[in-house]
Every structure is written in C-alpha cells, then in structure tokens.
Amino acid sequence: MSTDQPGATVLVGGASGLIGSPLVAHLEATGTRVRRLVRRPASGPDEVTWAPEDGVLPDSAFDGVSAVVVLSGAGVADKRWTSSRRRELLRSRTSTTSLIARRMAEVGGPRRLVAGSAVGFYADRDEEELTETSGPGEGFLAELTQAWEAAAQPARDAGLSVAHARTGLVLTPDGGALGRLLPLLRLGVAGPMGHGRQWWPWITLTDEVRALAHLVTSDVTGPVNLTAPEPLRNAELTRVLARALNRPATVPVPGIALRIGLGGFAAELLNSQRVLPTVLEADGFVFTHPRLEAAAAELVG
C-alpha cells in the first residue's frame, strides 16, 4: 500500500529522535498519517503508549497501519562506552525491534517493517568496497548491529516484509559526527581524524529521511545501505566542509585523542568503511545529495 494514498498510516518508533523527527515531518508533508509510539501517556489519537522494557505494545497500535518504522535506540555518541552503556546500547535496540516484530507477527501485520540498523555491521574494512552482500566485521558495533537485525526475526518468520536500514554517518549540524565537527571547523581548528585516509560512508539527513520514506513503500527486503553513492575519505570530507566555511582544515586530530575524548565511539570515526548503496539505487532511489560538494553549503549553514 503506497503511503501517499488517502488513509495510509505509518507507525513510527523513535519518532522524536534526530532522524525520526524529520522523518515524521516528511511523511506528514507528503500526505501520510503518522502514529507515534511514546513512552508517556498518549496525548492524542496520533500517539500510542508503549513500554518496550515491559513488553507492552497494544494491538490497537497497528489498527489501519500499512507499515512500521522502528528507529529506537540510545545514541552511540551520547556517552562513553562503559560496560553498562554497551548493555544499554544493545538492549535499547533489540528490545524495541524485537517487541514490534513479535507483535506484528501475532496480529498478522501490517505487511511492512523498516527496522533501523547501521553500517557498523561492516566494522573496519580498509579499502574493501562494501555492499549488502558483504559479511559482518568484528568488534562491538558489528556484534551490536547483527543482534539488532536478528531481533526482527519474528516478523520474517511470519512472512512479513522486512528491510534493515543500514545507516551511515548522517550529516546534520544538529548532532552526530558533523554536530561535533562543525564548531571546530568554524574556528578553523579542525582537520583529518587520525590519519584521515579512512573512508566515511556519509549521507545527508535529507537523503536519510527520503530513503527511509522510500523503503516504507518499497518491496526490497534484507539489508539496505543508506549511504551516499560517493563515500569520501575523512580528510577530503573535512576539506570540503571547511572550504564551504572559508576555513582551513589542516589541524589533524590524533586517533589517541579521539579515543580519550570519545571512548568507544572513536571507532566509528576511525574505521574505514567504503560502503555503497547498491540495493537502494537498484530500487530506483535518486539521491538529492549524491556528492558532498553540492550539499556542503547547506550543511554548514
């Protein structure tokens, strides 16, 4: 069922997040009704209260729904990766995805589930070109992402259509990697992270949201890389953004400094992941920002 048809409704978990909030706005702007899953008392008919930690998700959440998008999960860059934080990163993703997949299987639908995932699945792969057929890497992020995708198995077992949105580094001044980098770029005190030769699988927030909306109505299943078709090395990406600000980008940030300052999240910035959106492009998706140069001025404001 196409979400631009009158009456189409999409259920969204993680609707208030960095990606979820603009996704909701985009869907509503294109004529789709959105029902949000919230962890507080619902404030209107477009909200449903759920409690993933307690396994609570009412049948009524799925009434009239044509597709479900679940993006819930604690932010990987928000806190240092202590043992308890690693457990929270895993639990916050698997408990929400698993509950939605189980309940969809129990109520017999809706047909379509778009489940959040990440390119952390591939881990550090140097110069290897990575498509959806590439196997997993090693390390915490790879293990977390495999468990995250496995949590949707009940929906697959029930014969429902499941796509895993393996998201790259989402470029937005409001958060994530660019949110940390932009203030330094404005001051002219930023540069390559580590050696700077690592491939960054970037995507603008605009295309991330559009790609998720595309997947809602698509028939593709399995992993789908949500990254721009032209990944850039970290040093080049930094130079492009700095050039848009008329600032230099010559001050390198040593890898050891990133590890001290960011803990485990530094791996996401130092890993080399030459990820290509093979499935997304084959499915007819056209990027608004296939090359960073065209998006840089908008990203830096």
Rank of each mutant, 00 (worst) to 15 (best):
A294I: 14
P248S: 12
P41H: 02
V56E: 15
A151Y: 07
V56R: 08
E230C: 06
V253I: 15
P173H: 11
R197T: 15
L181M: 03
T217L: 10
N225F: 06
R197D: 09
T32M: 11
L141A: 15
E149M: 11
L292G: 05
P277S: 03
G64T: 13
A165N: 01
L144T: 04
S272T: 05
E88R: 15
Q153T: 15
T97G: 05
M104K: 00
L292H: 02
F285I: 04
L299F: 09
A242S: 07
R111W: 07
L187W: 14
A235R: 14
S218G: 09
A142L: 07
V34N: 06
V224S: 03
R180K: 14
L144H: 02
L226N: 03
R111V: 05
H26P: 05
F140W: 09
A235D: 06
A150N: 13
A147H: 06
V253R: 10
R112M: 10
R156M: 13
F62N: 06
T238I: 05
V76Q: 02
S161V: 11
A150V: 11
D46Q: 09
A213W: 00
L205G: 07
A77C: 03
W148H: 13
S43G: 15
E128P: 00
T206G: 10
P183S: 10
R85Q: 14
G168L: 03
S2F: 14
Y122S: 01
G44R: 03
P277T: 04
S21I: 05
P173L: 10
R243E: 07
Q5W: 13
G263E: 04
V300H: 10
V286I: 14
P45Q: 11
V240N: 03
D124T: 06
R39Y: 01
I203L: 01
E293L: 02
V286R: 14
P231F: 00
L215W: 01
P201R: 05
L215P: 08
A105W: 13
R86L: 13
A155V: 01
